[in-house]
């Protein structure tokens, strides 16, 4: 039972990270119809910026995260302006290829600047605490708490502010949103900023548990795609449900099936789902 609770808890932590990454991805996907393969690069840079800011200036973990969020959000906006915006009228194959170019570039850049070693991120939250017989680091609790708060604030932003409402309108109906005169450029930039910020936050939260290294974005981004497709393109509730589902499945799978094959679970899950429902589980009827 304790083992089971422990796994539920790990699943929640894992799922929180997937959810944060996937929300950014699903917003960009839903609004701009770009499967941003470079999202993993944003995640990667987010992890490194937090680490480096902490190491070089000695500031508190939270301040480093804030810095990372700002840097990566800006980077997201730059990506949109310099790469995806010029490609908005190109055939759909092109933005995918551009995104791949960005991945290659950023990974090489990170290696050049910060090297290829695996690095530990030490935070004030590495003490163990025990609740109901389950022992865990407070970092894991932090992950869950921050994720919940972030999703709550984001939802508030999307519902209560003008720009947020525009983003949601575009996510649901791109053409319609254009017709009612939403400033598509502003929405696109804002979406990329949010997407980058969430990636940076997720990376900063997960890094103390998972280490920081140049390939850290690979698996996360692929799994985030799994989450986006299961949850439905452009759907935030879908991303939350699917993110937690995936986190749980993996955590349970690692314990009760095989730790070696735990990474395959997500992908097998997706393959099964897409075989049955080519546009994902919660896809809307009309594309």
């Amino acid at each position: 039972m304790e083992l089971f609770l422990q796994q539920v808890f790990n699943g929640l932590t894992l799922g929180s990270v997937y959810t944060l990454v996937a929300i950014g991805l699903t917003l960009v996907f839903g609004i701009l119809h770009i499967p941003n393969f470079a999202h993993g690069a944003l995640y990667l840079i987010g992890g490194y910026v937090t680490l480096v800011v902490m190491q070089s200036t000695g500031v508190h973990y939270f301040i480093a995260i804030l810095a990372s969020i700002l840097v990566v959000a800006a980077l997201g906006v730059l990506m949109e302006r310099l790469v995806f915006n010029p490609l908005r009228n190109s055939p759909p194959i092109h933005d995918k290829i551009a995104a791949i170019g960005l991945v290659l570039f950023f990974e090489a850049l990170v290696q050049l600047i910060w090297g290829t070693e695996y690095q530990r991120m030490i935070t004030p939250f590495d003490n163990n605490i025990s609740i109901a017989g389950v022992s865990m680091t407070s970092q894991r609790i932090l992950v869950i708490v921050v994720a919940v708060v972030t999703v709550f604030l984001l939802t508030l932003f999307l519902k209560k502010t003008m720009i947020g409402a525009s983003i949601m309108a575009m996510a649901q109906n791109r053409e319609g949103a254009f017709l009612v005169g939403i400033n598509a450029n502003a929405v696109a930039m804002m979406t990329f900023a949010i997407s980058g910020a969430l990636a940076a936050l997720a990376a900063s939260l997960a890094s103390p548990i998972n280490l920081v290294f140049p390939a850290m974005g690979h698996l996360v981004i692929l799994k985030a795609f799994v989450v986006v497709i299961i949850g439905g393109m452009g759907s935030i509730p879908g991303a939350i449900v699917a993110g937690l589902l995936l986190g749980m499945t993996e955590s349970m799978g690692a314990t009760y099936i095989s730790n070696d094959y735990k990474d395959m679970i997500a992908f097998l899950l997706l393959i099964v789902i897409m075989t049955v429902r080519p546009k994902g589980l919660f896809a809307k009827g009309v594309y």
Binding site: L87, S90, A98, L104, E107
Partner: peptide
């Protein structure tokens, strides 16, 4: 590090010389 050059080349190609 050659990807530092190749990555941007790929991006520039699809934008300017698709």
């Amino acid at each position: 590090y050659h990807l530092l050059i190749f990555g941007p080349i790929l991006v520039l190609m699809v934008i300017f010389f698709p």
